[in-house]
Amino acid sequence: MTGKVVLGIESSCDETGVGLVRVDNSGAVELLADEVASSVELHARYGGVVPEVASRAHLEAMVPTMHRALRTADLRLADVDAIAVTCGPGLAGALLVGVSAAKAYAAALDVPLYGVNHLAGHVAADTLEHGPLPKPCLALLVSGGHSQLLRVDELASKITEIGSTIDDAAGEAYDKVARLLDLPYPGGPPIDKAAREGDPRAIAFPRGMTGPRDAKFDFSFSGLKTAVARWVEARERSGEAVPVADVAASFQEAVADVLTAKAVRAAEELGIGTLVISGGVAANSRLSALAAERCAAAGIQLRVPRPRLCTDNGAMIAAVGAHLLLAGSAPSSLELSANPALPVHTISV
């Protein structure tokens, strides 16, 4: 068997992920295992991720998830040639569990350790499904914690932020609007489902950061969330039933409209021919449909990994590790520590 096996560990939020990939000298990265233990159900009653609850769950899940990944790949720890771990950005206490585990495994197995950026992982996720990325490409990362437009020149060494949210992440807005509509947490799937029965043009919710003086590639979802709340409250005051499907569809349309319009505009202005959309919100049906429509119209190639790879996982971190290995990047020291505010241009530490 040729190639090197890279183990990836992810613990930046509420998913404990362990993934395994094999990379050969041609640069092909093969997915061998992708196991995730989620604590999302523990957070549901709080309406958001509780850091201490997430950190406790990571500690419990780490070794069992490791074993599941090794079983899936039919490998032993002794087969692992390098370890990559998310060292930021994310929740400090949650990151600490993954980083500490990765350091211990790396020291015990005497293999190189790479502390990597979670956001680079979301970009790398697409390489596991669609192969190497064209250089450069544009990435739209949308999740419960992040909303960013990135220019990716080299996955292992050069990622530049083009724009980001100035307040809430897109997924956060979904969670808050779901709560307004008495839909469950996390809000993405139930809003997506409700929206299918609704009219996306029923209510004209505002498109944040689209004025002539606004930063053209930044996002804002806080005002949208407040506009939805005001609209729902006005309905409730008047004693009328809230048309959940129409509100969900109109809200979702506003989110998808802004995200895709800005992404396509960025690709056009920067002369980039490929757009990758990743992160948990990439699984949203309206976002992917509108992105496909607008990318086709603009002649931009659209790549969206399957939903399982869009959400947080260890395989995407292993994929970053594989690219670092291929690029001959220097491994991290065993003094590696978590950095909750790791900037996106720092791909490895």
């Binding site: 500690l59 720890l77 569990v97 500490s100 585990a101």
Partner: peptide
């Protein structure tokens, strides 16, 4: 107190697993 404790515990668990 919470966070630091877990660094030691997951280290012990991972070392035991790997060794």
């Amino acid at each position: 107190p919470f966070t630091g404790l877990r660094a030691g515990m997951v280290t012990a668990a991972a070392l035991a697993d790997a060794l």
